[in-house]
Design a protein around this nucleic acid. Sequence first.
DNA 1: TTAATATATGAGCATATGTTCATATATATG
DNA 2: CATATATATGAACATATGCTCATATATTAA
Lengths: 104, 104
Amino acid sequence: MAVKTEDHLFLEAETVDEVSRLFKALADPTRIKMLYLLSQEECHVGHIAEVLGMSQSAVSHQLALLRTLRLVKYRREGKTLVYSCDDDHVISLLKQAIDHAQHR
Amino acid sequence: MAVKTEDHLFLEAETVDEVSRLFKALADPTRIKMLYLLSQEECHVGHIAEVLGMSQSAVSHQLALLRTLRLVKYRREGKTLVYSCDDDHVISLLKQAIDHAQHR
DNA sequence: TTAATATATGAGCATATGTTCATATATATG
DNA sequence: CATATATATGAACATATGCTCATATATTAA
């Protein structure tokens, strides 16, 4: 919660840091494309790399970051790992921002 | 608009960049605090610096960035410049992210 | 068990970002 | 007009970020 002090509300440092981490995750063009793709369909790693024209390594590094924040999850299927979104609220934020960007 | 291609939607490069710029603006702890403060009350530059414990220069640089994105506006009042939020939608995104961060 | 395939991870490097310090600019007011 | 005050801006520097390259790991399937 925000802390009431005199005449305005302060955010706690922990909250500010968490919000920062979340928006940082959403601030990179590559991750925006990845999350938007995953919001439409589950994908294995190689497919993401192919569709977005990225290296396997770059995709994997970014997925590691998104996993840390629990924005994506994965399961094994045969010899591939299938990734999908794991935070509807964050997808909602992303889509709002996309709408916002498109209406100007 | 997103472009339909075969089986999924691609975002246009321009849209991705705009979304990235927006989230980048929201991703820095300093700017989060500044925008949250401005969402509660109009402030002149010196007041922001004082309340957030930042240098005048740092505040001014960040305000310049927020102005570029039209997230804040200002007017002169006596010898000070009074800043306020200029994008309700973005404030809404910020507050949603704050709620999200606080509920975990 | 071994080879092949899919993914993860670490190191290194180039670029981006946020701050400070010094200084410029603009407006108010004596 | 002259000076003080508030804010803006440019340069420099330290840190963060995202990529590539090389290699490790894990699972499948022969």
